[in-house]
């Protein structure tokens, strides 16, 4: 059974992966400006989502991916 915290983590991860992969190629593929973090749009856009994903994955680790403490990890 997935806990609500576990479901939240997976929803956040799926949002992040979808945001990294789909808008960049379908909506922003010709977009160069504005530069983000000193890089053309698509580079900076992905780096921002990378920071988001790193934060979610760190949260997942800190909360044991939403699972209660095990008897065994």
């Amino acid at each position: 059974k997935m806990s609500s915290q576990s479901k939240l983590i997976w929803v956040l991860l799926l949002i992040g992966l979808a945001a990294m992969e789909f808008p960049g190629v379908f909506f922003f593929k010709d977009k160069v400006d504005p530069f983000i973090l000193g890089m053309p749009f698509i580079y900076g856009y992905i780096v921002c989502w990378w920071a988001y994903m790193s934060a979610v994955l760190l949260y997942a680790y800190k909360t044991r991916w939403g699972q209660p403490k095990g008897e065994g990890d």
Partner: peptide, 18 residues
């Protein structure tokens, strides 16, 4: 050796992508 590592690996591997 330990299952705990699998919880941490996604963060470490994702972070290192930079």
């Amino acid at each position: 050796k330990s299952a705990k590592l699998f919880n941490l690996m996604p963060f470490l591997l994702g972070f290192a992508a930079i």
